[in-house]
Simulated scan of single mutants.
Amino acid sequence: MTGPRRDPDGELRARLREAAGVHRPDRARILARVERGRAAEDQEPARPRLPDWVRVAGATAAVAGVLVAGGCAVASVVRDDAPARHPVAAPPGSRETGSREAGSREAGSREAGSREAGPLWSSGAVDPHSNEFWAQSNITLGTSTALTALTVELRVAQTGSVTSTGAWRSLPADDFTFTLDERDGFLVYRWTLKEGRTVPAGEWVFAGQYNHGRGGRDAGGDRYSAAATAASGPLAVRGGFTPGG
């Protein structure tokens, strides 16, 4: 007849519980060990703290390493979809065009400067009362001294159906000889001060009137000029016309 079966695992657990019950930790030894560990840390040289940008760069590099395989595939797709970029070559003659534009600006500056000469100044404008069939070009001359000779010329470009309807000036009509001519694609209005007459200091207007083709007329090709004589000597001004005043 066999005796009861032994339970080795159960006996082991019982002994462990018993040993745990009678164990008393050596508090003094534990505290001494902790103190020795702290002393060792105090004696160890301090490790330099890495700058924030180094730590961030390291983290970024780690992430980049993980994503490198997928990133290569994405980059390949982007490169294939993006249009190829090539150096842009200047079209033939662009330098020449730029030079012409610069020359035009320079010429415009010279023309604007020629609107004044000593005591004489001038301006040109399309009268604001002009309409889609008719227009008037006004030349304003100002002088701070008397003029003993004066010739004013208005040139209206033949832009289509341009025909004169008259002319006038704010100075006495008997002091001027007026002529109207058409040449080189322009209507030419000319006022010439008669010999022995004088233009006093002041501001004076010379105007030419004309019909033109229906619609807004471009006065960009119109020009005026004036040649005068004062006590200081000969004077000359010229210019173009601004639209509507």
Rank of each mutant, 00 (worst) to 15 (best):
R13A: 13
A112L: 14
V188A: 01
W168R: 06
A40D: 09
E203I: 12
G239H: 10
V22A: 10
G220L: 04
F206Y: 04
F206G: 00
V126K: 05
L147E: 04
G3I: 12
C72Y: 09
P4F: 06
Q43F: 04
A149C: 05
A117Q: 10
V63P: 00
S144G: 15
W53T: 02
E101H: 09
G244W: 13
D218Q: 07
L12S: 04
W204I: 07
V205D: 14
T229F: 00
Y189S: 07
A146F: 03
V237N: 07
P92Q: 08
G245P: 01
V74T: 10
V78F: 10
D181K: 12
G233K: 09
V88C: 05
G233W: 08
G185S: 12
S144H: 08
L16R: 14
D222M: 02
R27P: 01
A201I: 02
A89C: 03
T242W: 05
G37I: 13
A135F: 07
R197H: 15
P128G: 00
S114W: 12
A14F: 07
V205E: 12
P45V: 09
T177K: 00
E18Y: 06
R95D: 13
R5A: 14
S123D: 06
A236K: 15
G220M: 03
P234R: 11
G3H: 13
V162H: 00
R55E: 13
R24S: 11
T143P: 08
R49V: 15
A75P: 00
A40G: 05
E41N: 07
G70T: 10
R115N: 00
F206L: 02
V63F: 09
V63W: 11
E132Y: 14
R29I: 06
L12W: 04
A201D: 03
L193Y: 05
W204D: 01
T179C: 03
R214S: 09
H86V: 12
D42I: 06
P128Y: 11
P92V: 08
G124D: 00
R197C: 03
R217P: 03
F133R: 09
R217E: 01
R33A: 15
L120Q: 05
V34Q: 14
Q136S: 13
P128K: 07
G37R: 15
P128M: 01
G124N: 10
F133M: 04
G3V: 13
V126G: 08
V22H: 12
G98V: 06
A207K: 02
E132N: 10
V152K: 00
Q158S: 11
P4L: 05
R55D: 06
V188M: 01
V156N: 09
D222Y: 01
A207W: 04
E41M: 13
A90V: 05
A57H: 09
A64H: 13
S76Y: 05
A231H: 05
A219G: 15
G202Q: 00
V78L: 14
R95P: 04
